[in-house]
Design a protein around this nucleic acid. Structure first.
Lengths: 203, 203
DNA sequence: AAAAAATTAGTACATTTGTTCTAAAATAAT
DNA sequence: ATTATTTTAGAACAAATGTACTAATTTTTT
């Protein structure tokens, strides 16, 4: 019924499969047995479709962030949970992450939005790390500048893990999720005050 | 004189500035005051240009790898040096890294090559880590599976740091290099057996 | 039921792009 | 010097693409 929604769903599916370069509005319309004219009645410009999809991702991300703020306990299990949910989002909207630079160059507004989102995410992670230090979960013998650096590392890996997978492994959903999670697990290990306590569980 | 070389240089410059999506063979030809026909006499297909540029990058990377194999001492200074040279390469051919997935999807041969290169790089880094462990530079209390994980992290950050910078900071060459190097420095810190000895120097 | 508004299909157009073709000009070989 | 080869310019073509236009059809409102 909701034609706009159906267009977005079809676009997401096709973009995820083939990328934004090969998929045109004609392809999306054909996939829905819809005329190109009709599609462009709902989305005047192709970029409007990409923009709308990005906004859906941003909303989902923010929801995740709010949930995180409300969580009471923060330990390594919570972090692993978080990385699983992060994968879910990144995978669902993978065309964005696989073509992020191109998309941002093409639609600068998305870049602005992403920067704002990154700032919010950074604040949240900084808070989490503070708690993990107070907690005794994290080491205290490293210089404090290590924490913003870790945040940056985490973001780069989170945003581009899938791209790397596309270049090397090409693991599919299930295996990819496990590998993604393991990567994050391993990123936190060296920061734990007592790594040997946990290391057996998930390695 | 070497027309092929001039085409590649112009293509590299334009691709780096505007990406492979907006730059066409016509743009490259115009930039050289050359007819499109002439350009296509030297490179029958557009993809041949991208392919040739990738090959230049791959050769440079391999050279770096050979140099690394021959280096006698391996310490943190050597690692920092390496990251500086890595930045040099990544920055010089940045259009490849900024559009890596698209390029690999478009020209599958590049994907195969990159995978082979990654294997060689992995072997080399594994060896370096072994030496750093024997050395006493690296910690020994972490599970051994941490080292391949670290290699993967390093590769993701190396390959996509620039993409992340494009999405967030947009630092230019000089500042970008410093930030890139700092990122890698910070990635190694938590693995050092005695981080406090070095931490003052470069933080 | 009639009128108004919305959605849809299908066509058309201008632009762009990769590539080919032809012929001219420059260069090298004999 | 003449012939052969390589290089170049410029035009031309076909396919693709984003999007606008028009008319028909469906849906909603009154």
């Amino acid at each position: 019924m909701d034609t706009k929604g159906r267009i977005l769903e079809a676009a997401l599916e096709l973009y995820n499969m083939q990328g934004i370069r090969t998929i045109t509005t004609r392809h999306i319309a054909a996939h829905l047995n819809m005329s190109p004219g009709n599609l462009h009645y709902h989305f005047k410009h192709t970029d409007d479709i990409i923009r709308a999809l990005y906004e859906r991702l941003a909303v989902a991300f923010d929801l995740e962030l709010v949930q995180l703020q409300q969580s009471v306990t923060v330990d390594m299990d919570a972090i692993l949970d978080l990385s699983a949910r992060s994968f879910q989002l990144v995978y669902q909207y993978r065309f964005i992450f696989l073509h992020f630079v191109e998309i941002v160059w093409r639609i600068p507004g998305i870049g602005k939005d992403y920067q704002a989102l990154t700032k919010r995410r950074t604040r949240e992670f900084t808070r989490i790390f503070e708690r993990l230090i107070e907690n005794g979960t994290f080491r205290t013998d490293l210089p404090p500048s290590i924490w913003p650096a870790l945040v940056k590392q985490l973001f780069i890996v989170a945003d581009f893990w899938l791209s790397n997978n596309e270049l090397t492994g090409r693991l599919h959903e299930k295996k990819a999720r496990a590998a993604y999670q393991k990567t994050f697990y391993m990123m936190f290990l060296p920061f734990l005050a007592a790594p040997e306590k946990i290391s057996r569980a998930a390695v």
